[in-house]
Design a protein around this nucleic acid. Structure first.
Length: 292
DNA sequence: GCGTCCAGGTCTACC
DNA sequence: GGTAGACCTGGACGC
């Protein structure tokens, strides 16, 4: 049996462009049913449980298991779903800029730009590490292994994303052999140990007053996080002045704007310079237009 | 079946 | 500050 909660949304919100904004919807503990546009997520904690999100006119329906919908848990679910879907983020400045270009007019019309994220920055940080220097298929393997082998089980048999403490409790060999993390193994372990011990608090990045340049430096102090990973994380905490260029994004740019010819990153940066603090979101939406 | 290449990069050593 | 080389893995591709 399930209980249904309703999360009211607003005109500048589009469930579909938010859910299918980037690959995160395919990484556990998310599960995406594109045919029916339903997104499942397994929340962690002492008693993990999964919820299913779907669209309604003017809102999002959240199916949660009976027994987890006491007032406190219901409030937590609504708060975290707002966070995941970035319901409270204001994109009006971004839309004003993109509307000036006819080819980008669709972005405001479809209320695009909300990049799906995890309930915690820690989870997004681990997943971002799992995207570095590998195929998307391997990223999915690593995140699935992390959830299956270290995540706490919900009553429906699905598992939540592991806590930092759970991740700190295994060896580097475990990351190599069981997670298939390869050379990233010591990076995962070191990150988990620092977060579990309280030495590093990635959640603080969400509300940091640091200038983006300084915050990026702090992110890059995490082993395994370089320019791409830091700029991707910056996007996930709501700062879009970095492009987060990777081989996929570069390739898409060459195809769309450079007659399939390789060019320097500085040319790509110059192309999106006019979008100022929104340039990272501008390139992402521009390159993923066909998805929508 | 086997070898090679490369993907949603980063680190270290060296200059 | 810039660059070369090493680093794991799995899938695609050519033979």
């Amino acid at each position: 049996m399930t209980t249904k909660l309703i999360l009211e949304t607003h005109d500048a919100f589009n469930f579909r462009t938010a859910v299918y904004s980037h690959g995160w919807c395919e990484l556990r503990p998310f599960e995406f049913d594109q045919e029916n546009w339903r997104l499942r997520y397994v929340f962690g904690g002492a008693n993990p449980f999964s919820v299913v999100l779907s669209e309604l006119p003017g809102g999002v329906e959240i199916e949660a298991p009976d027994g987890v919908t006491d007032a406190g848990t219901a409030a937590r679910i609504l708060r975290e779903v707002r966070h995941i879907l970035r319901l409270d983020e204001d994109f009006s400045g971004f839309y004003r800029l993109t509307k000036k270009q006819k080819r980008l007019e669709w972005i405001a019309r479809m209320s695009a730009g909300r990049l799906l994220r995890s309930p915690t920055v820690f989870e997004d940080l681990v997943k971002t590490l799992a995207t570095t220097n590998c195929s998307w298929a391997l990223t999915r393997i690593m995140t699935t292994n992390l959830v299956e082998k270290l995540g706490r089980e919900a009553p429906d048999g699905r598992r939540a994303f592991p806590t930092a403490a759970a991740m700190a409790g295994v060896s580097a060999d475990f990351y190599r052999d069981e997670i298939r993390a390869g050379y990233r193994a010591p990076y995962f372990l070191e990150l988990a140990e620092r977060v579990a011990s309280g030495q590093l608090d990635p959640e603080a990045w969400l509300v940091s007053d640091l200038p983006t340049k300084e915050l990026k430096k702090e992110m890059k102090a995490v082993k395994g996080v370089g320019d791409y990973a830091a700029e991707n994380l910056l996007k996930l905490v709501g700062r879009y002045d970095g492009l987060a260029l990777d081989s996929w994004l570069r390739g898409q740019f060459y195809k769309k704007h450079n007659r399939e010819t390789v060019c320097d990153d500085r040319e790509i940066a110059a192309f999106y310079e006019k979008f100022g603090p929104w340039r990272g979101l501008a390139i992402w939406c521009d390159m993923t237009e066909k998805w929508h």
